[in-house]
Design a protein around this nucleic acid. Structure first.
Length: 126
RNA sequence: CCAGUCAGUCGGAUAGUUGCUUUUUUAAAAGAGGAAAGUCUGGGCAUCAUGGGAAUAUGGCGCUGGCUAACGGCCAGACAGCGUGAGCUGAUGGAGAGUGCAGCAGAGAGGAGACCGCCAUCUUUCGAGAUGGUAAGGGUGAAAGGGUGCGGUAAGAGCGCACCGCGUUUCUAGUGAUAGAGAUGGCAUGGUAAACCCCGCCAGAUGCAAGACCAAAUAGGAGAAGCACAUAAUGUAUUUCCACAUUGUUUCUCGGGUAGGUUGCUUGAGAGGCUUAGUAAUAAGUCUCCUAGAUGAAUAGCUAUCGACAACAGAACCCAGCUUAUAGACUGACUGGUACU
């Protein structure tokens, strides 16, 4: 269980169930950047969870054929998510990041910028 | 110095900082590979099936000896082929059990055959023809029923002899594959088994999403207790009444096993050093060490220096191998060539 309450006080954790991912895929709002695709939705009220924010990472085998690439993309997305979501994320929200081809090659600072911008656009939509 | 062969090692390093997983002493320690890959073999482990044995079918393996838990693996050797050489390559049992296959060419393709030839006799229009013998030479073909030489003959021929090859057999060396030597036969026995097949050996099926445990929910089930005011049915031999049981309903318990959770899950045919045995693979003894265990899934981001554009590539139950991918760096032994001493 990941935690980073030194910086913000918000707790952050990962999505565990396949059902959660499907729920976001169906009803969640989506924003596409060059680096990745982000989906978010408010958590269902009946779910009992201590965490403020939850997120997951999806990497398809179709885009990244080799296991080395898949792992690398997963790590990069997970890293920026834990850095930025706990500052800029909204409480009681679930997020899903989906990897694209550019995620592997793009600069790390650009990835961070993209995520911040995407979060801003999503919150303005709500 | 150049070219090459074999064996082995490594697979970016150091420091800082932010963060992740596991363990426990809550602060430390440990944290992807030589192939983690392909899932191709052999095992462990688990469940299911199975009285024991043999045969058949199907599939696999196939020179000899050794090693190993086992193998289709490894080591050593034999034989054959390739290379100037160090060395490399080889599914390498059986074609005297049987069946099959071989286009075209060619006279003839497996107990064969005579197109051009060669020789003898006869005929002759002197061009040649007929009959017979023969297989040295030519021609065809991937392959022509042993090879070379001498004798022999009308011409020839294993027809005879010598050497080589082949078959049979004896002796010697070796655990053996096999090798060497002698005797003898006198050419008969061509290729293909990665064609069917024969012989010998091996194999029950499914894979950790195996399996085990805890356990909301739901379907159907078992037991106990309560309720039955009223109504109906069946049973307790028969009729009436009463009572009881079942069918009803409620609650609880058992059982069940879904979602979910825990476990299997990493101390093992383990790694390293030394000694002994062995050419070696390996074995025995002894000392030291504990070295990922996640489960939407941990190894990353940034900075600096060196290096350099640095490959192939990411554990998912575990071992022993095989196969495939791999930039580059290094070590040792050896071979061939060139130059110098």
């Amino acid at each position: 269980m990941m935690s980073n309450d030194i910086v913000t006080g918000k707790t952050i954790g990962s999505l565990k169930k396949r059902a959660d991912f499907l729920r976001l895929q169906k009803g969640g709002q989506k924003w596409i950047t060059k680096s990745f695709i982000i989906q978010h939705k408010e958590r269902a009220s009946e779910v009992e969870c201590d965490l403020d924010i939850r997120f997951g990472v999806t990497i398809t085998k179709r885009i990244f054929k080799r296991a080395v690439d898949r792992n690398r993309v997963k790590r990069r997305l997970r890293h920026i998510a834990s850095d930025i979501l706990c500052v800029h994320g909204v409480s009681q929200m679930d997020y899903v990041l989906i990897g694209r081809k550019e995620t592997l090659t793009r600069d790390f600072t650009d990835l961070q910028k993209d995520l911040k911008w995407a979060l801003k656009r999503l919150s303005s939509q709500v």
